[in-house]
Simulated assay, not measured.
Amino acid sequence: MRVLVVYATTEGQTRKIAGRIAARVAETGHTPTTADATEAGPAHDPALFDAAFLAGSLHAGRYQAALVDYARRHAAALNARPSAFVSVSLSAAGDDPEDWSGLARCVEAFGRETGWTAMRLHHAAGAFRFTRYDFLKRWAMKYIAHRRGQAVDTHADTEYTDWPALDAFVDETLAAAGKGA
């Protein structure tokens, strides 16, 4: 099976997640093609693939504009084949019901805005990338961590992604795609 993985990233965690998806696709005997949504061209048309994964991260309640644009332009092809969405956010690292209902609203808004409804959805926890933040972003992210009761080292990056859960999601998605679901 030929599998497309398109992602958009801000600090790099979603790129890392997309790389893991592609690696898992390859490990299961399928052929992955990975593209950054900002660089996706005609060779990354979902109509050329048997299945597709899109991954994007939430920042201030929105996904990257390049991913929104890609999903909107290719909604018909994405809806016509097995497809999955990996939504990356720090909110997915916790169990606050308000955070999770906010995540659901963001995914619903993404679907309305793009016209694409993924066959499967996975919320992946992101990362604090303090080594990449400027002063203002570092301060804002430290405040967010404090509000959540998380102690963070602002001189190091902290990753929350559950890699085994992501692998299981990829495996389940590929199995469902293989059954024509």
Rank of each mutant, 00 (worst) to 15 (best):
Gln13Ile: 07
Ala181Met: 11
Ser83Asp: 04
Gly115Glu: 10
Arg62Cys: 03
Phe49Ile: 02
Trp139Ala: 15
Ala37Ile: 10
Tyr63Cys: 01
Lys137Ser: 14
Gly149Glu: 12
Ala65Gly: 08
Phe110Tyr: 06
Leu174Met: 03
Ala18Val: 03
Ser91Asp: 13
Arg112Trp: 13
Lys142Pro: 06
Arg73Gln: 14
Leu166Gly: 01
Val68Ala: 02
Asp69Glu: 14
Ala109Cys: 05
Arg81Cys: 05
Ala8Cys: 07
Trp116Glu: 03
Val107Ile: 08
Ala124Thr: 12
Ala165Gln: 08
Glu159Pro: 03
Tyr160Asp: 13
Ser91Tyr: 12
His122Asn: 05
Glu39Thr: 15
Phe53Lys: 03
Ala18Arg: 00
Ala37Cys: 09
Ser91Lys: 06
His44Ile: 11
Ala75Ser: 12
Thr131Asp: 08
Gly94Arg: 04
Arg132Trp: 12
Arg15Ile: 07
Arg129Gly: 05
Ala71Gly: 01
Lys16Ile: 15
Gln64Tyr: 04
Ile17His: 00
Ala22Cys: 03
Ala145Gly: 06
Ser87His: 06
Tyr143Ile: 15
Gln64Glu: 14
Asp95Phe: 12
Ala26Arg: 13
Ala175Gly: 09
Glu27Ser: 11
Glu39Ile: 12
Ser57His: 03
Phe53Cys: 01
Pro42Met: 12
Pro164Asn: 10
Ala26Ile: 15
Gly94Asn: 09
Ala104His: 13
His30Gly: 08
Leu90Thr: 10
Phe85Trp: 10
Arg24Trp: 04
Glu98Pro: 02
His123Val: 12
Phe53Ile: 11
Gly94Glu: 10
Asp50Pro: 00
Thr28Asp: 07
Val6Ala: 01
Ala47His: 13
Ser87Asn: 11
